[in-house]
């Protein structure tokens, strides 16, 4: 864990002004960006653990095809981060294994 992001902003990009949270820590995004992009901009770490073996994965295809970017957003599990525009105040949690039934803690 704690891998630095493998991306940097191109020259002239606006600052990240959208504030969200990832497992309690601040996660920033820029308007028009997806949650998956914000996650990749912050770190190179896994953003979920698979339900089968617990392997770490993070966003992969960025176009809604592979379902490797699943996270819990505002209490809804298994949401595709790469298809979700970032919004102020979003509460994001890494998806650890299979989803739960009923309300998320």
């Amino acid at each position: 864990m704690n891998a630095a992001s493998h991306f940097r902003d191109a020259p002239g990009m606006a600052p990240r002004s959208i504030r969200m949270s990832l497992d309690g820590e601040t996660l920033l995004a820029r308007p028009g960006e997806t949650v998956a992009a914000a996650l990749l901009a912050q770190s190179g770490d896994a953003t979920r653990r698979t339900p089968v073996t617990g392997a770490g994965r993070t966003a992969f295809c960025m176009m809604g095809v592979c379902f490797d970017c699943l996270v819990t957003i505002d209490g809804r599990p298994n949401v595709q981060a790469c298809m979700t525009p970032a919004r102020d105040g979003m509460v994001i949690r890494r998806q650890i294994g299979a989803r739960r039934l009923g309300d998320q803690p």
Partner: peptide
């Protein structure tokens, strides 16, 4: 459905 961690 998708996998669910809790036993039904």
């Amino acid at each position: 459905t998708e996998r669910v961690a809790d036993p039904l």
